[in-house]
Nucleic acid binder design. Structure first.
Lengths: 204, 204
DNA sequence: CGGGGCATGTTGACCTCGTCAACATACAGC
DNA sequence: GCTGTATGTTGACGAGGTCAACATGCCCCG
């Protein structure tokens, strides 16, 4: 983000673009992000962004990457805070994950919406998402060593856990879940079910 | 191409539009679906679709609804085929679900991509997705009665299971999962973990 | 059997948007 | 101060969604 505060014409337009685009996404959804609109909000012309990003997709990818970094930081912080009662730590991560998605629905959607983004493989994005997975794998590995969860391939288990929280976040965001259901309970039950499932492996 | 009924000008353009749009989505993604392109492929003008759908969104919603119905049918059929070894039935449903998503990635994406669709609540879509949930709840209820899974609120359990398979499908579709991982194994492990988790409930 | 009228389809036009090229300008270092 | 490059601006183009005016087919009424 803070590359350098070059006080050029605008003064680090690149960073401002990413920041403003993220804000616009939160306010009006990804569809409201227009080169013209974003330029207008920043007091520059529609063409200005092209001096910093080859096209709109690249800008959106940057926004998505920033989102992953933020999410990562958030999960990490909750994790660092006193390694609580072992498994509780994993459950907390899951909760933090879903809560992040609920707090920034449009942004979250963008992070996982390859469709709207590159056809080309976006290495930056892949790296940011990869970091998320790696962190999760690390935590799982720790718990495996403590014997708190079954000791299979931690990567596979990470995928299962990730699927559960991502799926829940996605369904909630897309309003596929009855609004009368208590979200907190549902989050708890989801993480708990996964943890229970990872402890009791009866076959394969 | 196969169906005709009213031999009006085109002969049931509405159905053709939905069908063709679905085909185009599969071929080139949702972005390739253009009023002009779809009209061209069907031999009508760009304006013709507007006699059957108020706007492009409505057409896409119809496509999404058709997708849900197809998915529902598929899950139901697998379910009806000899109520296999109890829990195996639930696992099969999960597998069928993910497999459907992998077979029709763009279509699946559309089904859950509210962003691209209505700002307004689309009752048809909600109904179709609701049917999916209801079916899942029914199956879960049956297994609860057989004592094969814990007997809490079947709706909540359905959401948990749905989250897991939807999340896995989503991550796979968006290529967030290492291609070296064996997809079949991952699907099996996911459904198995959920089932194990629903059997062994140690706390609330 | 012949119109009338609604259901369908067609076209032209307008607006928004992404993007590129030509042009303008501000900084930085000499 | 002077020049070159990093930035920003504008005009233009093409794609695409959508609407209104217009055209046409089809069914039903008399």
């Amino acid at each position: 983000m803070a590359e350098r505060a070059r006080t050029y014409h605008h003064g680090d337009l690149r960073a401002s673009l990413v920041e403003e685009a993220a804000a616009m996404i939160s306010e009006g959804g990804a569809a409201s992000v227009t080169m013209r609109a974003i330029g207008s909000r920043l007091g520059v012309s529609r063409g200005a962004p092209y001096r910093h990003f080859p096209d709109k997709t690249a800008l959106l990818v940057a926004v998505a990457v920033a989102g992953f970094k933020r999410l990562n930081r958030r999960l990490g912080s909750g994790d660092a805070g006193a390694s609580s009662s072992s498994v509780e730590r994993l459950r907390r991560m899951g909760e933090q994950y879903v809560r992040f998605a609920l707090k920034h629905p449009a942004h979250y959607r963008l992070m996982y919406g390859k469709e709207a983004l590159a056809r080309q493989d976006q290495p930056e994005l892949r790296k940011a998402a990869g970091a998320l997975l790696e962190n999760l794998i690390d935590v799982i590995r720790v718990h495996q060593q403590r014997g708190e969860i079954e000791g299979g391939d931690p990567r596979a288990q990470a995928y299962v856990a990730w699927s559960a929280v991502h799926g829940l976040a996605s369904l909630l965001i897309e309003k596929q879940i009855d609004p009368n259901v208590d979200v907190d309970d549902l989050i708890r039950q989801t993480t708990q079910t996964i943890l229970d499932g990872m402890r009791d492996r009866s076959q394969d």
